[in-house]
Design a protein around this nucleic acid. Sequence first.
DNA 1: ATAATAGTGTCTGTCAGACAATATCGT
DNA 2: ACGATATTGTCTGACAGACACTATTAT
Lengths: 295, 295
Amino acid sequence: MELKNKNGLTEKEFLEIYKPGDYQRPSVTVDMLLFTVGDKNGIKIAKNHRKLAEKGLKILLIKRKDHPYIGKWAIPGGFVEISESIDDAVYRELKEETNIDNVYMEQLYTWGDVNRDPRMRVMSVSYMALVPQESLKPIAGDDAEEVRWFNVYKDKLATDEDGNDYYEFYLESDDEDKIHILYDLKESYRNIGKTKINDSTFNKATDNEIAFDHYKIINSAIDRLRNKVEYTPIAFNLMPNYFTLTELQQVYEVILGKNLISANFRRKMKDFVEEVPFKKEGLAHRPSALYKYKE
Amino acid sequence: MELKNKNGLTEKEFLEIYKPGDYQRPSVTVDMLLFTVGDKNGIKIAKNHRKLAEKGLKILLIKRKDHPYIGKWAIPGGFVEISESIDDAVYRELKEETNIDNVYMEQLYTWGDVNRDPRMRVMSVSYMALVPQESLKPIAGDDAEEVRWFNVYKDKLATDEDGNDYYEFYLESDDEDKIHILYDLKESYRNIGKTKINDSTFNKATDNEIAFDHYKIINSAIDRLRNKVEYTPIAFNLMPNYFTLTELQQVYEVILGKNLISANFRRKMKDFVEEVPFKKEGLAHRPSALYKYKE
DNA sequence: ATAATAGTGTCTGTCAGACAATATCGT
DNA sequence: ACGATATTGTCTGACAGACACTATTAT
């Protein structure tokens, strides 16, 4: 059953003389969207009022130190080598740039517009992970002048009569030279056939921009993260070994961007946690039971 | 604010003299998983018994006419050109190979193992669509000797004490020279950090194989399709303008691979359909109301 | 009348949102 | 006792699965 092709070649013969064409190929990168939940020092400087919250959803960005987009903030990542799988590449980059191991990176989407990068054709496969802020020792590398956690917000402001949704979407760093990057975001809907498609339109509202199309990637990752946290135990990646249900609830609230009712939250978490026989004491109120992740 | 890099170049100057490195780049293809629901002529020739069903979930495959995997069945697709976006590529290929327009193709996953293709490094971005069988005029092209719809099944057989799930996963063509491609599929679970990951292990149980890693891609697309059909109106892409609720229910049953209770199904569909003022008559039973897709 | 499919009503349990009520600490 | 947070109970409405029951056609 040695099949031959129209030139009378077996597969072995075919492969021996096979030469890849010399047409142009794209470069392929992996981008890592690293999220965490951590303390927030700063306050909001945006259009609408917001209560001071003590924890915030954060994303790790690097400041580019060469063209293009020099000085702009970008999602960390790097090129996929010819001899490694895409998954291997993203875990390698994660280890190299943050020293993190043993975290599941979920593939989100592959971005393939033609002019994403002014140098050449670059496709980017984006991955996401939720990591404890402390677990990470970011290392500024060749591409990065600086590495920083940004609080990230996506709050719905309104829905118009056509069903378009308007959001305030912004990133903000806590550090002394506070950076605030604001986009006005409109999510509109159209039909292809009978399927409703979502289009996002960004208006840059501040000078401090994000490099490349990375604001689109961040926006889409937030949606995925919020969705994912609702039906998977992904948030437990952020918790220490023992934690209170209130601490866990805060993590969910920060990721979802809304307040939850504790009675309902506890009911929902019941099967995913297991009480341990000691408590968190020393505070001026009833001590809290501690729990660990179950299963 | 004309920023210069460490070599004293502005962005314009940098881009003018920029030369992409000569490192090797991967080839990138798009793969189109075209599903439909249609009449089934054949009967099952597999391990367990199955009632004869009149409709089946089908996927479009092409028979390769050159090495590698000559004579094997593969998902249609093609290379992404250097000057078109990935989305443009998949819609172009769809139009070229099937003459279909105006269908939403959803990006599923990007497959990037190193040895997917024995010729060279090829990454594949997979997309999925549900299309009416009649709307499609498949054209055998350069790569394809033949184009054919395969009934596709993924039935759970058992779960063992470790929580591994065992499936029968197979493809089968209706035509006179019936083709039957069977895999024994085990889905196991492991943890990376606190996240549960699914691994699929395939054992080829027949000689008629699928080209490349396309059986993995098909398997993962079925999961996505079943999930998607539960919470989006994607199935309406398969319906004609006017249809009965029983016909719609059959489509759902075929995609989900299980029977539904009509009272409950009707309740769930109530808001998505609108009755039209004529009926489907002429059959030896109560005539059915016709509906159209609403909104 | 019968076969066959169309269509309705209703009981059940589950689950989420809202919120009231009670518990237990340090001060 | 008071303030603060922890924890439980319970009412509600939405919804899904199961299934019994009624309706309407051709033969």
